[in-house]
Amino acid sequence: MRESKFYLFLGLGVLAFSIIWITLVFFQIEGDLGGYANTPRTIPFFLGICMSILGLVFLYQYKVGYVPKNKANPLQKNEIRNIIFCLIVFISYSYLLKYFGFLISTPIVVFFITRFLLGEKNWKLNYLFPIAMTGLIYFIFIILLKSSLPRGEIF
């Protein structure tokens, strides 16, 4: 039994990625390959080859019995759940921005994060922070610099 399968997984991952990439090079870039190495496909294809070589190198390292010098940190308690929560917040914020615009979604999201996700109990922080944050950004971008912030599609 090996101490660590790190390089095996890394090698396989990198190899799989490079294969997907090279397939995409042929499906997602139009045009012929050309007479000499100078087409839109050249560099992406070359990079894909480089990646697959790196994958093979990792597999070789695994075979020779390399062990990573520093041990990877074990997963923390609830880490995956927490990360998924955070991601949901990120993604829903970006969707809220898209449909409701900056002025409506920002205070709601900030309030939601501080109060519920992060469990902040201080009411001043809960209510003033979102409003201050929104107001400050609005002031800088719209009033001071006269630029644009995400406008909602609905409002």
Binding site: V89, F90, Y93, S94, L97, K98, F102, T106, V109, V110, I113, T114, L118, E120, L125, F129, M133, I137, F141, S147, S148, L149, P150
Partner: peptide, 27 residues
């Protein structure tokens, strides 16, 4: 740190949108 984190979160989303006014960039 988590207060700072909330601030950074809003800034990075607004900031990455504002570079090219594109929601693709946020994603």
């Amino acid at each position: 740190p988590h207060h700072l984190g909330v601030g950074i979160l809003v800034m990075v989303i607004v900031g990455s949108y504002a570079i090219r006014n594109s929601f693709l960039d946020v994603n």
